[in-house]
Design a protein around this nucleic acid. Structure first.
Lengths: 139, 139
DNA sequence: TTTTTATTAGTTAGTGCTTACCTAACTACT
DNA sequence: AGTAGTTAGGTAAGCACTAACTAATAAAAA
C-alpha cells in the first residue's frame, strides 16, 4: 500500500511539474517575470470587473484612491493596462487590460488549458473518459 | 470532442483547486502567511543544503555576505532558522531550519501528500491502479 | 433658468514601512 | 595575513497612507 502511495505520489508530482514548467513558459512569454503576486492579484480584479473605474477598484480592493492612481500608472507604464475617459462623466476613467495584462491575469487558466491539451494528446478516447471519471470521484 | 475537453478541464481544475485549498491550510498552519516567495526560496535552499554556512549560502544564492547576515537575522526573529558556531572553526556558523522553517520550506510537498491521501481515500484499489497507469502515460 | 454651492472622481505631494539588495570598513578567529 | 561574519550606511521598488488639490457634475438657490 505504501508502495502504491509512492507510485501515485510520483505520478502526481510529475503532473504538477508539467504544470509548473508550462506555467513558467507562459510567464516568460507574456513578460511577467517581475510582476509581483499582488500585482497579479490586481490584474485579476481588473479582469473580473470589466470597465472598472478608479473608485470602484479602490472599493473592491479596500485601498485608498491615491493607491489606485499609483497602481494604475505603474500598470500603464508596464503596458498591462490602459484607460479611457467616460463620455457620460468627464471625471470618470474606465480601466481596461491590454493583451499583455490579460495574458498575465489569465496565465494560470492558459497553463491549465495547455496541460489539458497535453493530456488529451497522450491518451486515447477511452483512457480520457476513464481519467475524467476517476478525477470526478475524488473528494 | 470540445465537450470532452471541457469535462477534463473541469475535472483537472477541481483537482488544482483542492491542491490550492489544502496548501492554503498548510500555509496557515505553519504561520507562513507573510513569508514572501523570495524568503520561501531561501528557506528551500537552506533545507537542501544541510548545515550550510553564511558564506556558502552567499555563494549558492549569488548574494553578498551582508545580505545573508540580514536575511538570517530576519529568519531567526521569525523563528524559522537557528545557528550554531562551528566547534572546529570559531569564525563559522552553521545554519539550521527550525521545525517551523522546515514546514514552510516543504509545504508544497506536504500538500501533495495530503492530495494523495485524499485521492487514495476516494478510489478503490483498482481505480487507483488505473489512475496511476493513466497519469504515467501523460507526455 | 441661471448661478452658486456642494459633491464626487481622480491627482499630487509628502510620509512611512518593508523587502531586498549593495559597498566599505570593521571585529574575531585561524 | 587571510577568512568568516558583522556593522553602518545607502539605494530602489512595492505598497500602503493622509491632506490638500483640480476638474467635472449635480443640487439648491436666486
Amino acid at each position: 500500500m505504501t508502495c502504491k502511495k509512492n507510485e501515485l505520489y510520483e505520478a502526481y508530482h510529475k503532473l504538477l511539474k508539467l504544470d509548473a514548467a508550462l506555467h513558467e513558459n507562459e510567464t516568460c512569454q507574456c513578460q511577467a517575470e517581475d510582476v509581483t503576486s499582488k500585482q497579479k492579484y490586481y490584474l485579476k480584479v481588473i479582469d473580473k470587473n470589466y470597465r472598472v473605474t478608479f473608485s470602484q477598484l479602490a472599493q473592491e480592493t479596500q485601498n485608498s484612491k491615491p493607491t489606485i492612481t499609483e497602481l494604475i500608472s505603474k500598470f500603464i507604464s508596464m503596458g498591462c493596462v490602459y484607460r479611457e475617459r467616460s463620455p457620460e462623466d468627464g471625471r470618470v476613467y474606465f480601466i481596461y487590460l491590454t493583451p499583455k495584462g490579460k495574458s498575465i491575469a489569465r496565465s494560470e487558466e492558459r497553463t491549465q488549458i495547455q496541460v489539458i491539451e497535453r493530456i488529451k494528446n497522450s491518451l486515447t478516447d477511452e483512457e480520457l473518459d476513464q481519467l475524467i471519471t476517476l478525477l470526478n470521484k475524488i473528494l
